[in-house]
Design a protein around this nucleic acid. Sequence first.
DNA 1: CATATGTCCTGAGAGC
DNA 2: TGCTCTCAGGACATAT
Length: 295
Amino acid sequence: MPELPEVETMKRGIAAVVGCRIRDVIRPKCRLKPIQISPDFARLRRRTTGRTIVGLGRIGKRLVIRLDHPRGAEGDSIVIEPRMTGLVLLAEPPGREHLRLIFQLEGGLASELKFWDRRGLGTVTLAPAADFERRYGLEAIGPDALEATAEMLRERLGKSRREIKVALLDQRAVAGIGNLYASEILHRTGIHPRRRCDRLQAGDWQALEEAIRDVLETAIRHEGSTLSDGTYRNALNQAGAFQNHHRVYDCAGETCRGCASGSIVRIVQAQRSTFFCPVCQPAKPRAAKRSAHGV
DNA sequence: CATATGTCCTGAGAGC
DNA sequence: TGCTCTCAGGACATAT
């Protein structure tokens, strides 16, 4: 499930496409329902063929491929959302069956950029320069999780009555955190996943800022998490390694690696699995420790 | 307005 | 063995 670290790894892994010109775009024949391409495949192909890739970016869990413009103005962008099982590859994909889109390249260091997606929930969108800010700016999507400060988090979530774990998944509040990393982040803060945002204290928001950066940056260094289904791969079709460092996600029943006494519990919030340690993350915060940071 | 729920999609695995 | 059923969770549409 590509979240911020996985998408960042994809971005870094396809750096060789920068400077390449798109020679053609191909949609392989597929018995499966086609993925969503906006506005449609024909227009994506027509408007990107002949363009040169001038840069790569990432907005939360979205990968941005920036193109040049025939008359020197600001160019269009291709925005790829991998969602559950989408992969962006330079190497051969895990299988031909779920190969959804191929950008054939020339004049640079890479020859093909492929989008592979087993479940087909991913999307590829051509975003004209004029529309980019409206669709992907701060108004539409929150600040990137790596840039989020305690003040920003408290400002955006501090009045919410939602449970903190559910709120961390809201991409308009902060962009890039998904179901897996939300559990890992909360475990490092010692915050119980069911605690309401509006009951968190100043020290909690500070702890969140630090844990978000720590977990996501460490996960990026390990090139993301490849879960037991093996779906996630980097651009060279290699597995990530951060799953070996998970402290709670998919660890139900195991002894907590943080306190060595609690047993990791799985609960369901908003129809999604949450994992936490009842010892490290008590439902009621310890008064002494919290009041030291109190307002 | 904020928050909650339903929907899409495929393949793996469970249960019979 | 082969069928049906459930589950996984990204973003977004719709409902409360």
